[in-house]
Structure formats: C-alpha cells, structure tokens
Design a protein around this nucleic acid. Structure first.
Lengths: 208, 208
DNA sequence: TGAGTCGCAGAACATACGTCCTATTCTCGA
DNA sequence: TCGAGAATAGGACGTATGTTCTGCGACTCA
C-alpha cells in the first residue's frame, strides 16, 4: 500500500467524516464539491486508486457505493429466524428458507458458535420441564441429518403424536430419549417412530 | 412512538442488516426487492411512517438517504462480565466494578433489554434444577436493592449457608422463595435470613 | 525530440433512484 | 352496511449519480 497523495488523503478523510455525520457515504459529486475538485472524473480517478490500495471498497453502478474497509467490523451477533412455536401436542414447524419468520433474533455469536442455518422455536407450555425448559423459553436449533450419541434434539414421536426435547442415544436396535433431568426415566422408542427435527444449540430464557 | 406493523418491522430490520452488511444504506428498490413489496410507493409510504415515528431519518432527494437514528443504531450486543460461579454450597461472588471478570460476554440487547450494570454467573452443579437451571447454564443478573413480588432472584440463605435461585414473594412477615417448577414446595424463611444478590434477567444454556 | 504516463478538466450518457400521482383493496367503526 | 381512512399496486417523471470519452499540460525516459 503506497503513500497517498494529499488529494487522496483529503478524499479519504472526507469519506470518513461524511459517513460519520450523515450515516451514509458521499456521492462522487459530494466529494467533488467538498474537496473543491473541478470534475467528477477526478474523483472517480482517485477513488479507483484508493480502492486499488485497499482503503475503500466500491460497488459498481451503485450510488453511494463506497464502503470503508478498515472498519472490518466483525459481527458480534448472528441473525436467527424465529419460525414458530414448539408445544407438546402440536406438529413441529418445518424450517425452510421461504417461510416467513415471526421475528428475527439477534443472538451473540458466542452462542451460535459460527453455525449456519440456525433457527429458533418458542416453547409453549411446560411439557418440556423435564428437559429444564420452561414455557416461553427460546430453543435454538440446527437442522441436521446426522445425530451423535448424546446430542440434545428436538423430535416428533409419531406413535405419541408429540413433540419433545431430549438427549438422543442409540441403544441397540432402539433409540433412547433421555430427559436432561437425570432423575427422570428415559423413553425407549423404535428408530422409525422418532423424527428428529434438529439439534439443540442453545436455550435462552428471558425473565426481565 | 407507536407500535410498528410487521411490514414496518421487517423494513427496519432490513435497513439495519443492509447497512451492517454493505456499509451503506439500501435504496427504496433494494427494500422493495428484499421485502417482496409490489411497489416502491409502498416502501416510500412505510419509510415515511418510520421517519414520523422517529426510527429513521431520511434526506430528501438523496439516494440511499436513509440514516438510522441513534436509538435505532444502538448496539446489538451489550457487554456483560462473567464474574464467577454460583454453586449451592459456596458464597456468591459479589459484583464490583474493580473485580476482574473471568470473561466478557457479548449478549444480544434483546436479552438485556437495555439494562445497565448487569453481570453473569456460571452455574455449577445441578442444585438449581428445581429452577430449571442446569449445570453450566449462564445466569444474567441485575444487582438490585428493591425487589418486587414475583421477581426471580439469586439469594444466599444464611441459616442454610446456601446459594439459591427462586421466585421471591413477601408473605406476611416471612419471605416465600418459590421454585420456578411449580410442582416443588416453596421455602419460607425469615426476611433477614435471606440475602438477595440480584434479579435474574436471563438464563442461557449452551449445548453446542 | 517524441512517445508514454500521470493527473486533471469538461462534458455527455445511461441509468439508478427518490418522488409522486392515481387507482384499488383492506379495515374497522358508526 | 356504508363510508372514510389506511395500506397497497403500478407506473411515470425528473433528477441524482456513476461512468466514460476526449482532450490538455506536466513530467519522465529513452
């Protein structure tokens, strides 16, 4: 990254200031006026240089398409769609990219651990109290095909017509669904009786 | 500031996201496409409402002239210090500004609800399983002097030398500490036997 | 001296974009 | 049930704005 000309320094400085004050980037002509340049082509010319040297990022054909690179803002939150409710007796909402989420949650990335395609369900009722999950809690899920022993999963049990949230274990030719509360008895079911919807990433309870 | 329609919420959400991702605000047509709106006029209409209610600031005749107002631009995460552990038989760590936190957590502001001076404790052991809180869970607390009936609090019970997490009720000349799990029996203690450390704002369980 | 590059000037061009007008549908209380 | 206002649809209009073309002086390098 080579040294910038005074004019380029001025332009870069103006971009920073403009964004700070206005909340959006300047146009080519904004820069032209503020820096007393005679032509938009001069601005264009120097913006290209600034981009080449890595100071800014330009989106072609986009008005005010100037972004400051150094900001390199790392995201502290991930967006997770809240797609529906989970209740004992109701079928589970199925996650699909098309479905309209009820709400978009901002969850700290420390919670989501960089996972993608997460979605969330709001718990209705106290039927999962044996999994230490209360009415109103938020369950963050990762849709998954492969399940490992010990994963906590959200499952639909066909024979009982019931949604549940348990630890999942293969136990011979059965599947053992174990409540998180170890004082409760596990549930043994046939593998094809249980439909796993996703793996539980996190549970959030908001009391405030 | 009145309540926003789902569409207005979606638009506001998109603006935030767009700015975060692109570094500059969306155009009316960007919003139209992203929110599946039929016309730019619908966007214009709703943007004006958002402006009227103080969520955004528009610069007329300016492309991408949408700015988030400070209140809407506010941080999506709050920093909460994790200052120690909470276990049944151990005294509670006392929150002080000087103490070195074990870790700084970034929690979504939707969780913290704008509260200040929050701190977090990591739960050790299953002694609070009757409050639906498991080993390893994170408890977010607000230090508080005044307690309202029904608040969930973290308390130290002197006579039992025990830390606990219960719903707090004044019950005549006693204090009733009620487990969140309503099937469990409440605990009745003398007011000066219980030392309330803080009010529980949120509980976070990370299973990933 | 002449070709080549750099930095700039001025303007033209195409289109991205905000705005606004009209019409239609939806909502909800009198 | 009717009417008024809210909300939406579709599109036209004007301009704001990125891009590009041509050209000019200054400077470098053989």
């Amino acid at each position: 990254m080579r040294k910038l000309s005074p004019r380029q320094e001025a332009i870069l400085q103006l971009i920073r200031q403009f964004i700070e004050e206005q909340g959006y980037p300047p146009t080519v002509r904004d820069i032209q006026r503020a820096c007393h340049l005679s032509s938009t082509s001069v601005v264009d010319y120097n913006l290209n240089i600034l981009q080449k040297y890595g100071h800014i990022r330009r989106s072609p054909e986009v008005s005010r398409g100037i972004g400051l690179l150094p900001q390199a803002r790392q995201r502290l939150t991930a967006r997770v769609p809240l797609i529906g409710y989970i209740a004992a007796g109701e079928p589970l909402p199925v996650f699909s990219a098309q479905a309209e989420p009820l709400e978009i949650l901002e969850l700290a990335t420390s919670l989501t651990r960089g996972e993608e395609d997460l979605y969330a369900l709001r718990v209705r009722g106290t039927s999962m109290i044996d999994a230490l999950i209360d009415d109103g809690d938020l369950v963050v899920l990762k849709p998954t095909k492969t399940i490992n022993n010990g994963d906590t999963v959200v499952a639909w049990i066909r024979s009982k017509q019931e949604a549940t949230l348990k630890r999942f274990y293969y136990d011979g030719d059965r599947v053992r669904l174990q409540p998180a509360n170890s004082q409760m008895a596990p549930l043994l079911v046939a593998p094809d009786d249980v439909e796993v919807q996703g793996r539980v990433i996190a549970v959030v309870r908001n009391l405030a």
